[in-house]
Design a protein around this nucleic acid. Structure first.
Length: 539
DNA sequence: CGTGAACGCGCC
DNA sequence: AGGGCGCGTTCACG
């Protein structure tokens, strides 16, 4: 059953399946939703991030929704058109691409939510696999609900523990504009050991000059390049960079801006990445460094249940490609160990680097060396990503298992490809076009795996979310609830006496997710679950 | 002076 | 010489 929520000049309207409409005063909207939630409807609205937070603040939790904006973005991708822009949120429009629409429409001319919903249902029904597209729409929308709920409850964060770890690493907090003691000391050490005069350590170009003056042959100050050097100044320099990073990215300023009342509240952006992964906006939620994870702490009497899908992407590739040998290699909890046991490669490290290279398009080093052996043992899996890469190199689009499509390469890309294949093309033009072609191929190669992994993860999250919620236990924050999602990892904050059922939910939902995304598949998707007080104690 | 690209690095 | 991101800093540019 669907209930469409529509904003009208005269107020809020709710329209149910029969077309019956009711005008609802804004102040009683939450009460209306709470009451009708008993009918288990799917709420259809323009934008979960716009509608749901107010409901959550009013203590109303919704089981299912259909997010018109997110589904429009998916359908727009499939249909090769720009997404709708009438719903207020800025959609970046590139001024110089070929297919721009006039974006000067506004809410007065926008079609009503029931009309858009009807169009979307028709578009989904017209897809080659309508069931899959409908699943994708549902999973994407469920993710939007979970994102709003996680923002509402926040990630439990012990600000005092964070402060203490900063003091231990950096020394006491300095006044604005001054370096913390540890950085001051390390900068002095680097300067003394390089012995070439003052070293502007915070300026990469100047730092390169100083290093060169000290006789070190470097092109940049990237830490992987510095690690190859043998010089006494390198160790303190690397430590400086690491601590400086801690200070600027997750130091006291970050703590004051982002942690309040024991909670870190980032903004998650479902569908924020072309592949379907989430992005985040503010606070760097998806890049929480390991250095600060000890500050993520459960409340007293509660635990953090941290679950991680083991080797998600290679398993996704095995299922996508129907590679029975790789499914067999993944029968245990460690797929890489299974690859070694199959005899394809010598070591777990080779298996891991080789598979990552196959999925990312690595062409050098160990990754390239072991690729032929993987291709011999797992021809279907490797063939699948190779085909996706070749399609991208030709400028074709690829799609995930549930049908999310990769974008077309830009107009300039296509132009340079056709220029390079014409008679008068110079060698430089051809080389550049070849390089760009391979680069787009690496993108599409990864797109199919990363995007399908995102679909599995969304399905997993939706299943966990559904299992955790029990209406009779009261508001979300008083019962086990999701607090964090990181591509292939979920965190649940749960009362200690509910931890067992949370673990079961995480395992059961992972089992279901494989069925939802792939149907019958021999590939398993094990999750490792840790029950901890601090995030840093997981894995 | 403000803006935006580039860098470098954190996460998966 | 590897895919996807966000963010803080520096630096070039108008």
């Amino acid at each position: 059953m669907h209930i469409v929520v529509d904003r009208r000049p005269e107020g809020l309207a709710v329209v149910d399946e029969s077309g019956a409409e009711a005008l609802v005063p804004a102040e009683s909207f939450a009460a209306h939703v709470r009451e009708r939630e008993a009918e288990h409807p799917r709420w259809v609205w323009t934008d979960t991030a716009q509608w749901y937070p107010a409901l959550l603040r009013a203590g109303v939790r919704v089981e299912r929704c259909h997010d018109l904006r997110l589904v429009d973005a998916i359908l727009a991708g499939i249909e090769g058109r720009p997404p709708r822009t009438e719903w207020g949120k800025a959609v970046p429009v590139r001024a110089n691409t070929l297919f721009d629409f006039d974006s000067g429409q506004d809410a007065r001319t926008a079609p009503s939510a029931p009309d858009v919903f009807a169009e979307q249902r028709a578009a989904i029904a017209a897809q080659p696999s309508p069931g899959r597209t409908a699943l994708l729409a549902a999973a994407e929308s469920a993710g939007a609900l979970a994102a709003a709920e996680m923002e509402f409850v926040g990630l439990p964060w012990n600000a005092e523990a964070h402060h203490q770890l900063l003091v231990e690493a950096l020394g006491e907090r300095p006044p604005p504009g001054r370096r913390p003691p540890a950085l001051e000391r390390l900068a002095g050490e680097v300067e003394a050991l390089l012995d070439v005069g003052p070293v502007p350590i915070d300026s990469p170009p100047e730092l390169v000059k100083s290093l060169r003056r000290a006789g070190l042959d470097v092109q940049s100050t990237r830490s992987w390049e510095l690690k190859k050097l043998d010089h006494p100044a390198i160790a303190p320099l690397l430590q400086y960079k690491s601590l400086s990073r801690l200070l600027t990215a997750n130091g006291w300023n970050w703590l004051e801006e982002w942690v309040h009342d024991g909670r870190f509240r980032p903004t998650f952006v479902p569908g924020g990445v072309v592949t379907g992964r989430w992005a985040s906006d503010g606070g760097g939620a998806l890049q929480l460094p390991k250095q600060v994870r000890s500050a993520v702490q459960a409340d007293a009497g509660w635990a953090l249940v941290v679950a991680d899908a083991a080797q998600l992407e290679p398993r996704v590739l095995a299922a996508l490609s129907g590679d029975a040998a790789m499914a067999q290699a993944g029968a245990g909890v460690d797929l890489y160990a299974g690859i070694v046991a199959s005899g394809a490669v010598e070591s777990r490290e080779h298996a891991k680097v080789g598979m990552l290279g196959a999925m990312y398009g690595g062409t050098t080093g160990v990754s390239a060396q072991v690729l032929p052996r993987l291709a011999r043992s797992f021809p279907r899996a490797i063939g699948f990503v190779e085909a996706a890469a070749r399609a991208g190199e030709r400028g074709e689009r690829v799609e995930t298992r549930l049908g999310r499509t990769s974008p077309r390469p830009g107009a300039e890309w296509r132009e340079r490809q056709s220029m390079a294949s014409s008679d008068g093309a110079g060698e430089a033009d051809r080389a550049r076009a070849r390089s760009e072609s391979r680069s787009w191929g690496r993108f599409t190669r990864n797109f199919v795996v990363q995007g399908t992994a995102a679909e599995w993860a969304l399905s997993w999250m939706a299943g966990v979310r559904r299992r955790l919620w029990q209406p009779e236990l009261g508001p979300i924050e008083q019962q086990p609830h999701l607090v964090f999602f990181l591509h292939d990892e979920l965190m649940v904050h749960a009362p200690l006496d509910r931890v067992d059922e949370v673990q079961a939910a995480l395992h059961d939902a992972a089992f279901d997710a494989a069925r939802i995304v792939f149907g019958a598949t021999p590939v398993t998707f094990p999750v490792t679950v840790a029950v901890v007080q601090r995030y840093s104690d997981a894995k």
